[in-house]
């Protein structure tokens, strides 16, 4: 069965079923956050690799030209930032590995 649980950094786990919303879990506080589909798409952009500002702008523009509200887009980026995802991706990019589920 495909892995659906990811460790984005030491503190942040993501359960992503590739359909609908995902769940983010913050280890230090024990908080759960719902990551909606749009946020998942944005996360996918950030996860795709190191991007120049131009590339980032281009991919974000792709989402807005495909019906997403730019203001809403901004809110999702803020959510990712508040969860520490953006920091995790920039500072610990090398350590991002899928979390293997014990079987």
């Amino acid at each position: 069965m495909e892995d659906t649980s990811w460790a984005l950094n030491r503190n942040l786990r993501l359960a992503d079923w590739r359909e609908g919303d995902a769940i983010a879990y913050l280890g230090d506080s024990g908080d759960l956050h719902v990551i909606n589909e749009l946020t998942r798409k944005i996360l996918g952009i950030f996860q795709s690799g190191p991007l120049t500002l131009g590339e980032l702008s281009e991919r974000m523009s792709f989402l807005t030209t495909h019906g997403e509200d730019p203001h809403y887009l901004g809110r999702q980026v803020v959510q990712l930032e508040s969860l520490g995802v953006l920091y995790a991706l920039s500072a610990e990019r090398e350590s991002i590995t899928p979390l293997k589920i014990k079987r």
């Binding site: 359960a15 079923w17 359909e19 919303d21 995902a22 769940i23 719902v34």
Partner: peptide, 8 residues
Amino acid sequence: RSKATTFF
């Protein structure tokens, strides 16, 4: 029901 809301 979605898995995310089920999990929650």
